[in-house]
Simulated assay, not measured.
Amino acid sequence: MTALPEGWTDFGVAAAGATAALAGLLIVAISVNVSEIIASKSAVHGARATIASLVLAIAVSLLMLPAPQTLLGLGIATIVLGLIASAIQISAIRAQWVAGEAGLTAGPRIAILALAAGQHLPFLVGGILLLVGVDAGLWWLVAGVVMVVVASLVDAWVLLIEVRR
């Protein structure tokens, strides 16, 4: 079994710290505006999906830390976690599309939902590549973490500011 290449634990430490800090911001945003969020089915589903995405990024990052971690082990764990987070995200996307967003035209709604849907794809592709022993799958995990961070920052803004409009 092929071990994780040297140096990737540093990425795991940095990514786990960054995504955990962002998860803390998200929890604060939810707690500050809990009544506004609960009043909107769309916001509840969005918050749940964002938490699932952050848990995916945190867990995959932390799984890079134990030595000796193998590409196979990381690949299997990434695929399982990615499928769980994707199922939660798909449920949220479906609920948000049905609920609609006041004031948003179809174009911005599609862009927001595409970002939400696309953020897990790099984890799944990366997991499959790692499963077959291709260490380039690690770069797909990096892309996944970056996409989750970007999407989660947008979601944190929405849950902190936009739900009050």
Rank of each mutant, 00 (worst) to 15 (best):
S61W: 02
A87H: 12
F11R: 01
L26Y: 01
L130S: 01
A14I: 11
N33Y: 06
Q119G: 00
W97M: 08
L62I: 14
Q96W: 01
Q96T: 11
A16D: 03
I51L: 15
A59W: 07
H120D: 10
A116P: 01
L141S: 00
L115E: 09
I51R: 05
Q69A: 14
T2N: 12
I84E: 02
L104P: 05
W157R: 13
V55A: 13
E162M: 12
A85R: 02
M64H: 07
E162D: 14
G82L: 10
V32I: 12
G73C: 00
V148N: 01
G107E: 13
S152L: 00
L131K: 05
T2I: 04
I90N: 04
A16K: 04
G126E: 06
V148S: 10
V149F: 14
P5T: 00
L159F: 06
P66S: 04
A102L: 11
A21N: 11
V28W: 02
G133R: 01
L113S: 13
V142S: 04
A111T: 12
V142K: 03
I38D: 12
L113R: 13
A102M: 07
V142P: 02
L22N: 06
I161A: 12
L71H: 08
L113I: 05
L138E: 04
L81N: 09
S86A: 12
D155E: 14
L54E: 14
S61G: 06
S91H: 11
S91D: 15
V32K: 08
S35P: 05
P66V: 09
A102S: 12
G75W: 02
S31Y: 05
E6C: 00
R48Y: 07
G24P: 00
K41V: 13
D135V: 09
L113E: 14
I51C: 07
Q119M: 11
L4H: 01
A47M: 07
W139Y: 15
V149H: 04
A3V: 06
T9R: 15
S152K: 04
P66K: 04
L54F: 08
S42G: 12
T78P: 10
L72H: 13
L160I: 08
V132G: 00
A14N: 08
A49P: 08
A47G: 13
M64I: 02
L141I: 15
I37D: 08
Q69S: 13
M1A: 11
A23K: 15
L25F: 12
G126L: 05
V148L: 04
V150K: 06
A114K: 06
A15H: 05
